[in-house]
């Protein structure tokens, strides 16, 4: 039996690739969507060789929201699972100085991802099945001085996913919110991250595949982050505003 396809939005990222490999290893054909998709040709060959599934490449620009309807319509097959890994961290200091840079971060983490998932949500709802996975971030759980531009956009995305889940719960469509803490990727390279709190992209991918199969709603990874963020959310604002975290 041929398994249904899985779409990866933002397939060039480390987490995107890891998720693609994971679903391919489970026997799913994979649709890789990214900007300049043709540069993923070597990854396509790699995934096909390793997992013996078919891999297709699709040009995708998260910020060109006007193209999203056509993008979904042009897919060879409506996927069963769509995983949105699109995101941009930027530099907080630059985001404070340069409002255009800040807007790019806001749009890349909220507007683009929400737009494409909204289009897919309508198609999935019409079909009456499917899973939408949004990779948000623990940074969205509370705004902090060190990365609130990124965090605020992720907060918006988390809220969007929560609303989408609420809307689609009775329509057979599953919405999974993934909240990674630190992950060892290109985005965090050079940052001095505590090893015990830092996950490898492959571990995040395994957790996502489990959560999709188990129809989970919200997954923190590593799981310890649920506790860490519970504490951080509950610090009174008058104390929090003086902290450096």
């Amino acid at each position: 039996m041929i398994k249904p396809p899985v779409l990866i939005l933002g397939a060039r990222s480390d987490i995107g690739k890891a998720v693609a490999h994971k679903f391919a290893s489970l026997g799913h054909p994979v649709q890789l969507a990214a900007r300049n998709a043709s540069t993923l040709e070597a990854d396509k060959t790699d995934m096909e060789l390793r997992h013996g599934v078919s891999v297709t490449l699709h040009e995708f620009e998260a910020l060109a929201t006007e193209t999203h309807d056509a993008f979904v319509a042009a897919l060879p097959q409506l996927p069963e699972v769509a995983v949105c890994v699109v995101g941009l961290m930027g530099q907080q200091a630059e985001n404070e100085r340069d409002i255009q840079a800040a807007c790019r971060v806001m749009r890349s983490n909220y507007e683009g991802p929400a737009s494409i998932l909204a289009v897919l949500a309508n198609s999935f709802e019409a079909r009456g099945s499917g899973t939408l996975v949004g990779i948000s971030s623990v940074a969205g759980d509370r705004g902090r001085a060190t990365n609130y531009v990124y965090g605020s956009a992720k907060a918006g995305f988390t809220a969007f996913l929560s609303g989408l889940r609420n809307r689609l719960a009775k329509r057979g469509v599953h919405v999974l919110t993934v909240l990674p803490g630190f992950v060892s990727t290109q985005m965090t390279e050079g940052m001095d991250l505590p090893a015990k709190l830092t996950a490898e992209p492959g571990e995040v991918a395994d957790a996502i595949a489990r959560a999709v199969a188990g129809r989970k709603d919200v997954v923190y990874f590593r799981p310890i982050w649920r506790l860490i963020m519970l504490i951080i959310r509950n610090i009174p604002e008058r104390v929090f505003k003086r902290l450096k975290i």
Partner: peptide, 9 residues
């Protein structure tokens, strides 16, 4: 370890 693609078999 990120330069880790299989190319042909």
């Amino acid at each position: 370890r990120h330069i880790n693609r299989m190319i042909a078999f």
